[in-house]
């Protein structure tokens, strides 16, 4: 992981204004993405994955604001850029975002080709013929017939729409692409097709990628580095094999054990309780009310996000206890 950093996030904190008070959706998150790396961000609903992704492109909802932190993408200080600069220099040209349920993001009144034209025109002054030529090539790369440029979204299947959204994200040859739950609404076999496509494109286009999913097993298929989020915090970060085979955080361990594994005939376990209310979070570590290893200090103070060797980070007071607990059963 010593490659150059194409994306770096430092101490990022994002809050939403809600009727009940400020909700801290992303809390002091730091990580970087090396050139050519594929980072998988995993977490359950409400853990802050999507807010983190949208703040990197400054696509946050109107009631959200960045409280503190830095986002550096390809040398650009994103949080200081104007909206015009974001559109002309950053979005789609350097970093693209494929939003969750993006199959439904295609405008039903526009043909696929028009959606390519509109997206490109928002960022460059490329001519229509050139845009459509490039769009056609990309569609073929994602295994959709070129003729679908003349189709309306409702004439396409879920898998085709997702492939088209990925092609759209690639049209301006970005270095980085962020995919938010790109397979969640799809059938299992189609999900496997999209995962294979993702791997092929990553190779071919030399992309650095962030793949967001609530599904640990999907993340295992698309990442060489994994970040685990809980209650707005990045709890653990490391290489894929470290996270899956040597987790340091009790939440990661619990999450891995709660995933059904088709190869086994054992029941999946679960973590008692539910994630905290982020308007009134517990003191100390947000996982402490559900953690089997929690001690007094966990209820008092949030642990630092520390490197435990080999760029394997965790935010937990009980790392040695977790390792013992993990191997003890």
């Amino acid at each position: 992981m010593s490659s150059s950093r194409v994306l770096e996030v430092r101490g990022l904190t994002v809050e939403f204004e809600t009727a009940r008070g400020p909700l801290r959706a992303v809390n002091n998150v730091s990580f970087w993405l090396g050139d050519g790396e594929s980072l998988g961000l995993v977490g359950e609903s409400g853990s802050g994955k999507t807010t983190l992704a949208t703040s990197i492109l400054r696509l946050l909802a109107p009631n959200a604001r960045v409280v503190s932190g830095e986002v550096i993408v390809d040398g650009m200080d994103v949080l200081r850029m104007s909206e015009a600069e974001l559109n002309s220099k950053l979005r789609w040209r350097v970093i693209s975002y494929v939003p969750q349920a993006s199959q439904n993001a295609l405008d039903p009144l526009y043909k696929v080709g028009d959606q390519f034209v509109e997206t490109v025109r928002a960022h460059t002054n490329m001519g229509v013929a050139e845009i459509l030529e490039r769009a056609g090539e990309l569609l073929e790369q994602v295994n959709v017939e070129r003729s679908k440029l003349n189709s309306y979204p409702w004439q396409l299947s879920g898998g085709q729409k997702q492939r088209i959204m990925i092609a759209l994200a690639l049209i301006l040859k970005p270095k980085i692409i962020i995919l938010d739950e790109p397979t969640t609404a799809l059938d299992t076999i189609v999900q496997a097709q999209i995962i294979e496509l993702f791997r092929k494109l990553k190779e071919y286009e030399r992309l650095s990628t962030i793949f967001i999913s609530h599904d640990v097993s999907v993340i295992a298929n698309v990442s060489n580095k994994v970040g685990v989020m809980y209650a707005g915090r990045l709890m653990e970060l490391g290489t894929s094999s470290e996270i899956f085979h040597r987790p340091l955080h009790p939440y990661t361990l619990g999450l891995l054990r709660s995933v059904p594994d088709m190869r086994k005939n054992t029941p999946n376990e679960f973590i008692p309780g539910t994630p905290p209310d982020l308007v009134n979070p517990p003191s100390g570590c947000p996982f402490n009310p559900r953690c089997p290893l929690a001690q007094d200090i966990c209820r008092r103070e949030m642990p630092k996000f520390e490197d435990y060797g080999g760029e394997h980070y965790a935010a937990c007071w009980m790392v040695p206890a977790t390792v013992a607990y993990s191997s003890g059963r």
Binding site: I189, Q191, A192, Q193, I195, N221, F244, L256
Partner: peptide, 24 residues
């Protein structure tokens, strides 16, 4: 067979495979 090969498992050393083409 295609369905089982497409189901991801929580282990980075095992990859899903798509044995069937297209969609239902």
């Amino acid at each position: 067979q295609a369905l089982i090969a497409a189901v991801p498992v929580p282990d980075p050393s095992v990859s899903v495979r798509s044995l069937a083409k297209g969609e239902i």
